[in-house]
């Protein structure tokens, strides 16, 4: 939902003393990422990817730090974060399960997989379990329609899912 507004930063931002964008990270970005782009802003997407990889989400405080680092407005950073689906502004579960809901997966039975996961984890799509272990997402086509229905669990894709198989996958994670 690219244009649907995510929780905005106008409310109180939680801050901590230690910066999210550490000096070590900044040095690495300066050496590795900045030279690849004509403008500093061009480095924004790779930097956001790195920050999200590091913390699992992009804290509001880090957006301000990134803006200072790239000499752009914090609003520009929020603009990016709110537009792209994969950026989270709140912590997500240790395991993020993204079930594909697009056309090939739907006609090959994604609904049963999704319903089963909802029951098993006790959450609706885009929610996280109370123990912080699982986040359930619905995603659009994962580019693996030959293996429909499929889902991403963190970085790994699992194809031709059945209920037994998804049970096994989840139990193995636990």
């Amino acid at each position: 939902m690219a244009w649907n507004v995510k929780p905005s930063a106008t409310t109180q931002i939680q801050k901590r003393d230690a910066p999210y964008l550490t000096e070590k990270m900044a040095r690495r970005f300066t050496r590795k990422i900045l030279p690849r782009y004509e403008t500093k802003m061009g480095a924004l997407m790779p930097i956001l990817n790195e920050v999200q990889h590091e913390y699992g989400y992009i804290p509001y405080q880090s957006m301000i730090e990134i803006a200072t680092f790239l000499e752009i407005h914090p609003g520009d950073v929020l603009d990016m974060v709110s537009f792209y689906e994969e950026y989270h502004t709140e912590p997500v579960g240790k395991y993020v399960i993204g079930v594909c809901q697009s056309i090939a997966c739907e006609v090959c039975g994604h609904q049963a997989i999704l319903d089963h996961l909802r029951g098993k984890l006790g959450i609706e799509p885009h929610e996280t379990t109370d123990d912080g272990r699982f986040t359930l997402l619905t995603m659009e086509c994962l580019g693996a329609c030959e293996g429909a229905p499929c889902a991403l669990i963190n970085d790994d894709r699992h194809d031709n899912l059945s209920i037994d198989q998804i049970d096994r996958l989840i139990d193995d994670l636990e």
């Binding site: 697009s102 090939a104 086509c141 580019g143 329609c145 030959e146």
Partner: peptide
């Protein structure tokens, strides 16, 4: 990202 497409992959 076009649903149904997975040839480039």
């Amino acid at each position: 990202a076009e649903p149904g497409t997975f040839k480039d992959r």
